[in-house]
Design a binder for these strands. Sequence first.
DNA 1: GTCTATATGACGATAGAC
DNA 2: GTCTATCGTCATATAGAC
Lengths: 210, 210
Amino acid sequence: MHKIAGMQSAPAKVSFKEQMHQARERAILQSACDLLGEKSFDAMTMDDVAGKVGIAKASLYKHFGSKEELCSAAMVEVLSAAQAYLKSLDGSLSALDKLQAAVRWSLERLLAQEMPLLPSRNSTLRAVLMANRSYADGVIEVSDLMGEWITQAQEQGVIDADLPPIVVLYTLYARACDPVVGFLKDSTLYRDEEIVDLVLRTCFEGLRAR
Amino acid sequence: MHKIAGMQSAPAKVSFKEQMHQARERAILQSACDLLGEKSFDAMTMDDVAGKVGIAKASLYKHFGSKEELCSAAMVEVLSAAQAYLKSLDGSLSALDKLQAAVRWSLERLLAQEMPLLPSRNSTLRAVLMANRSYADGVIEVSDLMGEWITQAQEQGVIDADLPPIVVLYTLYARACDPVVGFLKDSTLYRDEEIVDLVLRTCFEGLRAR
DNA sequence: GTCTATATGACGATAGAC
DNA sequence: GTCTATCGTCATATAGAC
């Protein structure tokens, strides 16, 4: 494709530039997401991101106005992936199966270090995120979906109906930043699938013998 | 008590100065401990500590050589308190009761923001602590004690014997930094005692109905 | 838009007077 | 030992050339 001189700009070239721009932006987001899976928001630096992407730090700021903005965008991506997964769950599954699948998904992400953990207090990021409209909306949507499954499972008598649904919800959310996963992985005693199964089991069945 | 001039220094006065020194050191440790209960090691600053104690930052360094040293000492204090509590548990209690009491104790500390949370990755402090002899020894001692109770409870058929003891141990440890506690406290839906009971219950009984 | 170089500010740690 | 004042370092963010 030759470029032909003309008054109007070539649409193809604009589109290509635009594609490059978006591709770079995705690469930045992916790097940020990976890094947030490895370390905390505070510990992660913009130099880390720039180094991982392979561009100059200043270039990051052409795409995202600040570290908070970049990391918020990365977290919104993660949340979107979670939402997409939840919506993809087959409607024929039982409510309990869907809840377990959701937890399994987050544990797998956690093991792959793709799940930035958000301990409630340990992060400046949390305040920023909660002020972010698309993130807050996503959290509400996920909570509504999970909440429905929880009450269904309680009506079906497979989740302890004496537990307030919000306690169940938070308990499931907490699995997404469960340090037990990291402890067990560091111990090298179990394969990733075994870790997922063990944590899922202690979460739903508890520790006490039945 | 008059001070009487003489060649030898007056023991009473030296002791008093020494007491003041130790009192200040305890105050520093307590402030550091409180702050670590509120925020992460990275987020906590030496200015925070100095401000809370009410002394100049430089004075901190007369007592502790570095931020790491100070926080390590604070964590050793917390660990010692935990060890003391475990040892105080009545020998007539069942193994399961002791395990539950231990978790209850840490949850209460967590609610009082007296329990500095140690998410495995989110902290520079972790590496420092594990190189600290008295901390590492304390962790081993606690783990041995809890491990014994866990196997006893499994032999008695009250803890699921199919779970590897180390998985049970880590699951119990994780309660000491459980974000569910903070979530529920922020919701203002439950009193502290209710939160402790709910989290204890999901930990030992799981979510599934019996 | 990308780069190099730099301004700005926060924080850990220290110097030196008292 | 306590203070005030300051240094050194590192990280966010920006300036300005290309």
